[in-house]
Design a protein around this nucleic acid. Structure first.
Lengths: 134, 134
DNA sequence: TCCATATACTTCGAGTTCAAATGATGCGAG
DNA sequence: CTCGCATCATTTGAACTCGAAGTATATGGA
């Protein structure tokens, strides 16, 4: 049966992503942030636009707005007018935001979700997923 | 860099699961159900317990309670006392629930999320994910 | 120049999720 | 038998998600 393996793979993918989320949640609890804030800080490397953040977070733009509201309230980011596109806004980390981001990265990197796989297995997995997503 | 491939794989997995969710959402819209109801109906094959449903749905028990409330309100399932364990309840599909489930399965199966992969690729993917989740 | 279409951001509602607390029942160790 | 701990189901609260609708700006072509 074709549906058989479909089912299992979907279920496993779901569980794997849940595992990733659980780790993010753990880090968020440690740092007194919410999970989405952790992900947003992870992705906020350079000054980027809100849409670009949504792309990196793989979510809708409305979610980016939502999390940026919170981060802005906490003084971790700043919304500046975009230099060339007046529709857009440039998101910039404040100094406090930079420090927070450093904490986030340090804790996130203290765990490799792919540790159970060898290097060649990791690249196989990457290639298979690439084929599925595009 | 190790973190490099970690990042990409996690992102790809996230996007793949989003694609799966989008399909479920589409089916849910077509049938006038919510996405979670669709997933619950898919998993409700035999009379099972609420905990078992949560396991199959890969979610917390409280979510199973939540979705069962809705399905019960709509007359699609029934909660019966469990024959041997008085803590548990047996979830049974009503005739209307059986019909609904048939619709759900038909539409869900009309699309294979793994169509982009060959059979051997599918089993490779399954094995890699198995190793990650356990 | 002016209009049609596309894009950036935001607001809002409905539905989901997890996690913690609660009450009832099962079950094994002493 | 009974005490202590595990398990089933439920309730509740905070946060997250999507998608649709609305406003402002951009951009290409008539």
């Amino acid at each position: 049966m074709a549906g058989q393996i479909d089912r299992e793979v979907c279920n496993l993918a779901h569980r794997f992503v849940q595992k990733l989320d659980a780790h993010v949640r753990r880090v968020a609890d440690e740092l007194g942030l919410t999970p989405t804030q952790v992900v947003a800080l992870r992705e906020l490397s350079d000054p980027i636009t809100a849409r670009e953040l949504a792309n990196r977070m793989a979510c809708e733009a409305s979610n980016a707005t939502f999390v940026l509201d919170r981060l802005e309230q906490q003084g971790l980011v700043e919304r500046r007018p975009h230099p060339t596109d007046r529709r857009a806004k440039q998101i910039v980390l404040t100094p406090a935001g930079e420090r927070r981001r450093a904490d986030v990265l340090e804790r996130l990197d203290a765990y490799s979700p792919l540790a159970a796989l060898s290097r060649t297995q990791q690249t196989s997995l990457r290639d298979l997923l690439r084929a599925l997503v595009t």
